[in-house]
Design a protein around this nucleic acid. Structure first.
Lengths: 252, 252
DNA sequence: CGGGGAGTTGAATGCAGTCAACAAATGTGG
DNA sequence: CCACATTTGTTGACTGCATTCAACTCCCCG
């Protein structure tokens, strides 16, 4: 892990935050929030951003890369709660229970922006707007969480995998500015075992489902690379409606 | 459905809100919030509190009774997202997407307190505190949601059912003031099919799991009544730790 | 007393897990 | 730059949990 406190990449030009989580803040408020950023951190694959049980004193937004949020279970396995992508907000913990109940690990090279939580509370002028924004982010997280668990509870393995792959594809491709690039596929540093740990399947079964999806001509996947050939067909396999899924997964 | 706008039950004496969701607000703020309550609604079993697609203009807190939040799925079945009990906050929707993505139906006689959302925004003096409180409620909801879907994803049918029954038992028994009453069991207006719809099982299989739990001497259930005979043993079957589960399910 | 929802039982089917072995890809140190 | 170790992906055979379908009972409520 490497910390950068000087020559931070320029918030105005970055646009990652604007495109995603804090997008609904007014520009004036957003500027003030951005000025609260204290530093950036850089992580390599396998490094932890934080561990379960810690008390966070800073909020993190992902500038670049993929992060897995997960819980270790008693039987030695892990449950993946969420794949966090560029723009996502992590470890903010406003409420009572200010110890984290899960851990976060980088699965690619990751850069995050750090904001001291205390500065949020002190900067009174932005507090109402910011807390509203965070409320609505929390709402979106809850809605995504319910959608995920509906898929996990009710669907077949194939539908679950299709749902997750399509969700990740839509979220990641939002950051590819050129539309034609999306047809070439996205950066996808997630193993079949990660997918299994997220959906409660075995990696062996995920593998067989991947093969099925490939044979149907729905996806292509080389190493750390995913291409969705037909979004609509994949949505059908996932028993989801593409427009609704986009609305849920993409903030803009 | 019946609306009451006069002679509302006394907030000061009620304590339901204090025990649960809005408990962390300072007393002065809580008083102001309570004064914003415009009316109470009374529902009978089977009546809808709201339908998916509606745009809510009021937040609801449950004063008494059980409510099921669910989504209708394309295949005609439904996914239950949450069982809402006394003290829970419903349909608040602060953020962008102000149409509701799920429906709510009463499964017992239900009384709810209604707060015009607009009044939350106008009452500037309480706004930051309130939206922070709502954020932390959302955080708790998300944490509960993750715990639920971990159970659904990773556990056997028996563990899932045990986890859900114990969670509901803990939450409901929080409102029974006398401890000895809890040993007699709780009011439990939930059918086996409801449990099945919440966990993604068939009601037939839930029935067989119930029988197993009864034979092990863990639970007793007559009509609309549930008694948990040994919380610790049931927690073990659920692969959960009782203290942690209590922390997650009970705010106080 | 009769109807309908909720709960119960049995038998047959099938999806996903388990175990074991192997192949391919990736990364590391000499 | 090659050799080796480790991780990731792939295949096959067997097992078992949960579903499906159908019939039936019980209980509550009007």
């Amino acid at each position: 892990m490497r910390i950068i406190t000087q020559n931070l990449s320029d918030c105005e030009k970055c646009g990652v935050c604007k495109m995603t989580l804090l997008g609904e803040l007014e520009t004036t408020v957003l500027d003030k929030v951005m000025k609260l950023r204290s530093s950036q951190y850089i992580y390599s694959p396998g490094e932890y951003l934080y561990h379960a049980g810690e008390t966070p004193d800073r909020a993190l937004t992902i500038h670049k890369g993929w992060v897995i949020l997960f819980k270790d279970l008693d039987d030695g396995s892990r449950q993946i709660l969420r794949f966090a992508l560029a723009g996502d907000l992590l470890s903010y913990r406003i409420g009572l229970k200010n110890t984290l109940d899960h851990s976060a690990i980088a699965v690619s090279d990751v850069t995050v922006c750090s904001f001291p939580i205390e500065s949020f509370r002190q900067e009174k002028s932005i507090l109402p707007d910011l807390s509203f924004a965070i409320s609505s982010i929390s709402e979106l997280m809850t809605a995504q969480c319910y959608a995920t668990f509906t898929s996990i509870a009710k669907e077949s393995g194939e539908a679950k995998v299709a749902f997750l792959l399509l969700s990740l594809f839509l979220r990641e491709s939002e950051h590819s500015l050129k539309k034609k690039d999306i047809n070439e596929g996205i950066f996808f540093p997630i193993t079949q075992e990660d997918i299994a740990d997220a959906l409660g399947l075995t990696s062996i079964h995920v593998n067989r489902i991947y093969q099925g999806l490939r044979k149907q001509g729905l996806i292509e996947c080389k190493s750390k690379h995913l291409r969705v050939i037909d979004q609509n067909k994949l949505a059908k396999v996932a028993h989801a409606k593409l427009p609704e899924l986009k609305k849920l997964m993409i903030v803009s």
